[in-house]
Design a protein around this nucleic acid. Structure first.
Length: 557
RNA sequence: GCGCCCGUAGCUCAGCUGGAUAGAGUACUUGGCUACGAACCAAGGGGUCGGGCGUUCGAAUCGCUCCGGGCGCGCCA
């Protein structure tokens, strides 16, 4: 038995609409949940929507709609209120049946099929191997990975991808910095370049290099250092492998895995960059000026044209980016979402312009982007400036070690990517027990504890009558469970995983309130079983939701 | 100067494809463990939704404008 109140009410209203106003039968029917309990369980504003088109009083239209509304066993009350709202009150059985839906579907409850199992790629983190991952990458990892989980729950076949530059100017800079350290030259020396990497980790890499160490990163073969400070190529290979290995360790500690790593260098060696250059030139979107080759991105909405090949011969960063995205397209990803920091938002126009200039049938708005705003880190009451080159850092590893993986992930994903984030380390550390993630996990652990003390067969709970569930808080909890599938669907459609976190906090609050008001392990078997069924259903959704955030659902804590 | 994001309770933030009396956490005040986990609950105070104009039956939500903050505006990535 599965019953969806919103869909049911929409069906009823559609039938009424066809009779009352056949000319407006295609009007979208919106069913929403009123904030105020006195307005019933669900409300429709259809009459007000029709008022203008029909040039009639909305309350009169509402009356006609009500008169034409088919009968329904799920409704106990239907009335007109306010400016022309139609308010519906559900029968108790209509409110509680969701418990059976959840217990029948288990973890599948809430999953949808909007993606129809189509391929979708999400690129995120994509940090270059020039230093450890910092808190900004952490936000990208938390948001990106959670987004992937949400999209998968909405029926998409998701590929997680990480792209990095292992061959450009910044890698040369890294190589030079390690080489100088290997020669015993530090930032205090006059020989140290102004833009050299100053972090202590450079010293560690140089030391390991001189010791002829071997390192292994997930996406490449093991690299053994030659130990020769004059061998720049060996230093580069070693330093990149070392930093990739560090990033892998951080991501693993964070619970984030990637399906595909793409290297910028491969785009060159496989001729994909050259092919894009030829295509752009052949299509007539390039010109030479000041010794450089420019791409006419202004033809595609950019505010100025961009250099694609520098006077010294190398390509600017966005050219391989275009080649990379063409490669994504050629791999069959008609839907691609790039999650990245908002400080890179200017690349969007350029990459899309380059793809349009290729004229290979890529849609204008492809790929899509989720940009997260900056993370400001507070420590000891003041802002910590993050500078990779200066070596002033708050690494993702530090956060995981200090405040824990679950709390860090929750904190970084729980807010809209559009809003700037203040990460107060002292607060997160000293008051970690007050972190909302524990509030949610506590609800889960509580349910596990009660079910364990009861000791019965949880799967068998679905067979019992839910009629004893008629208290206000229990029904509110049911309504929250009812809203889970649309919460997942909306979070996926809007690329907004933080909505999952918001929902879970509300769900936990509804549960805690109910838990304190009603006792589950009572003598009356019928009441006991109905309440345990509701608790078990709540546990299932809590677990599903926490999983979408990449946060654990502990059975005790 | 131009582009993007933001401005909601003392603080941190939800709500934004327009709906009825704007929410949560935290902080503050006051209650609740001889009952399944008090990392919990209940109650209370706390607001020009940055300002203004407009669209609308209805605006925190949409449009215009001003103010304030962040990011970007490299032949760096």
């Amino acid at each position: 038995m599965h019953f969806d109140p919103k869909a049911h009410l929409a069906d009823l209203l559609r039938a009424a609409l066809a009779k009352v106003a056949p000319d407006h039968a295609d009007t979208a029917i919106l069913i929403e949940r009123p904030k105020q309990a006195s307005h019933g369980d669900y409300a429709a504003n259809l009459a007000m929507q029709l008022a203008r088109a029909m040039k009639a009083n909305p309350r009169q239209i509402a009356e006609q709609l009500l008169a034409a509304l088919p009968a329904s066993e799920w409704l106990v009350k239907r009335e007109i209120a306010g400016a022309g709202f139609i308010n519906f009150t559900l029968a108790t059985a209509a409110k509680t049946q969701v418990v059976k839906s959840v217990l029948a579907a288990c973890e599948a409850y809430g999953r949808g099929n909007a993606g129809e199992n189509r391929k979708l790629q999400v690129e995120f983190v994509s940090a270059n191997p020039t230093g450890p991952l910092h808190v900004g990458h952490g936000r990208g990892a938390a948001v990106g990975d959670s987004l992937c989980r949400v999209l998968a729950a909405a029926g998409w076949d998701v590929t997680r991808e990480f792209y990095y530059n292992d061959a450009g100017a910044q890698i040369d800079n890294l190589t030079r910095s390690v080489q100088l350290r290997a020669r015993g030259i530090g930032p205090d020396s006059a020989e140290w370049p102004e833009d050299g990497y100053r972090g202590d980790y450079i010293v560690d890499i140089a030391k390991a290099y001189l010791d002829k160490a071997t390192v292994h990163a997930d996406d490449r073969a093991s690299v053994t250092a030659s130990g020769d400070p004059e061998n720049a190529e060996s230093i580069r290979d070693f330093a990149v492998a070392w930093l990739r290995r560090e990033q892998d360790a951080d991501l693993q500690a964070f619970g984030v895995k990637f399906d595909v790593f793409s290297l910028e260098s491969a785009l060159y060696t496989e001729g994909k960059v050259a092919a894009v250059v030829e295509k752009l030139k052949a299509n007539g979107y390039t010109y030479e000026q000041d010794g450089a080759v420019w791409l006419r991105t202004t033809d595609f909405g950019d505010d100025k044209d961009r250099v694609m090949q520098k006077a010294e011969g190398g390509y600017t960063y966005f050219l391989p980016d275009v080649a990379y995205h063409l490669d994504k397209w050629n791999r069959g990803f008609t839907k691609v979402v790039n999650e990245q920091g908002a400080d890179h938002h200017s690349t969007i126009t350029r990459v899309r312009a380059g793809l349009q200039a290729l004229n290979v049938g890529i849609p204008q708005g492809w790929p899509e982007y989720v940009l997260h705003q900056m993370v400001m880190v507070m420590k000891n009451g003041e802002e910590v400036k993050i500078s990779k080159r200066a070596g002033s850092y708050v690494t993702l590893r530090d956060l995981i070690d200090e405040v824990g993986r679950d709390a860090t992930r929750y904190f970084l994903v729980a807010r809209s990517p559009d809003s700037q984030l203040v990460f107060d380390i002292d607060l997160a550390k000293s008051q970690s027990n007050e972190n909302p993630v524990y509030y949610i996990q506590y609800a889960h652990a509580r349910i596990c504890s009660v079910l364990q003390q009861w000791g019965g067969d949880v799967a068998g709970l679905a067979a019992h009558s839910l009629d004893p569930l008629n208290d206000e808080r229990g029904l509110a909890l049911c309504a929250r469970l009812q809203a889970w599938p649309e919460t997942v669907a909306t979070a996926a459609a809007e690329y907004a995983p933080h909505q999952i976190a918001v929902y879970l906090k509300d769900l936990a609050a509804d549960f805690h309130g109910w838990y304190n008001a009603e006792r589950m392990l009572v003598d009356d078997a019928a009441v006991k079983h109905a309440r345990l069924a509701l608790a078990a259903a709540t546990r299932t959704v809590l677990r599903s939701g926490l999983d979408l955030l990449g946060v654990s659902a502990p059975e005790s804590m």
